[in-house]
């Protein structure tokens, strides 16, 4: 309790240094929150695409229902398939009509006969797309195979790059904030050198002197984490309507409150670790 009081006195007596420490911590946690949203969101987007039918095999005119069922069974037996859905000529027309209901000209041009029957196949893993696609192409009843591998591949590589950038940037900011905190707390220790000397001569233990500085680091970390989280979450919630219209059809938003709470708790834990680590380094460096 005494250490907390002393820590608070340290903070109050040098507000600009405290502000600098809190700002750098806020920036770090703002970046961590932002990249957590991107990583969480992108994982959900990939999952969405992976769960969608990724391969569509269109059948020739002469393919019978027996031929189609046989091929569907063969694909299922490969063990790489999550689901197989048969779309008949009639269903294809219905779907076409729904998608183009606002364009009567397009509706007039298309009849049930020109739309082929198809199989929509989802694989359990994105890596299996090639094998399933090859198997379908080898069938004499299949006229064309279309799959979204390229889209997912591009998205995956973008997300992978984003994750790497986020990770590197977070590590960089965390390192910078640790160094700045070491400098700020070290400076405070230097300012209080005489006071610390007196305390030691008056029988203070090492930890009596150290605790307020350690708590100060933790305080800056926790306040920085809270500010970073509040700003990033506030921005996300504010931008949710806009993002929802942009990501139409992908069930990503609104972000679950549980995710936000888990993120806050994780950031607070990280803040305590970063704050304590920085002040401990300062204490080791300046309080010998």
């Amino acid at each position: 309790m005494k250490s907390i009081k002393t820590m608070w006195k340290h903070v109050r007596r040098s507000p600009y240094q405290a502000l600098a420490a809190i700002l750098i911590m806020s920036l770090t946690f703002l970046s961590i929150s932002f990249f957590s949203f991107v990583i969480f969101g992108s994982s959900r987007v990939i999952s969405y695409f992976e769960s969608k039918p990724q391969v569509t095999a269109f059948f020739k005119e002469d393919a019978t229902q027996e031929n189609i069922d046989g091929l569907a069974d063969a694909v299922k037996q490969s063990g790489k398939v999550a689901s197989v859905k048969f779309v008949s000529k009639q269903e294809a027309l219905e779907l076409y009509k729904r998608q183009n209901q606002d364009d009567p000209l397009l509706l007039d041009l298309v009849t049930e006969d020109i739309l082929p029957a198809s199989l929509e196949i989802a694989t359990t893993r994105i890596e299996d797309l090639n094998d399933v696609s090859t198997q379908l192409q080898q069938s004499p009843f299949v006229s064309e195979v279309v799959y979204q591998k390229d889209v997912v591949d591009t998205l995956s590589s973008w997300i992978g790059a984003l994750r790497k950038i986020g990770f590197v940037l977070t590590i960089l900011l965390a390192t910078v904030s640790v160094f700045i905190m070491v400098i700020i707390i070290g400076f405070k220790i230097s300012q209080k050198k005489d006071e610390i000397e007196v305390m030691r001569l008056l029988s203070a233990t090492k930890w009596y002197v150290r605790w307020p500085f350690l708590l100060e680091g933790i305080f800056y970390g926790v306040i920085g984490a809270l500010i970073g989280w509040v700003i990033s979450t506030g921005t996300l919630l504010y931008a949710t309507p806009l993002l929802e219209s942009f990501l139409k059809g992908i069930p990503l938003l609104p972000v679950s409150p549980l995710f936000l709470i888990v993120l806050l708790v994780a950031e607070l834990v990280l803040a305590v670790i970063l704050g304590a680590f920085s002040s401990f380094l300062a204490v080791l460096r300046y309080l010998k």
Binding site: K2, M199, L202, S203, A204, T205, Y208
Partner: peptide, 11 residues
């Protein structure tokens, strides 16, 4: 007073 209290607080 705070100066004199200090060693007692530390203890």
């Amino acid at each position: 007073f705070e100066n004199i209290l200090l060693p007692l607080e530390m203890a």
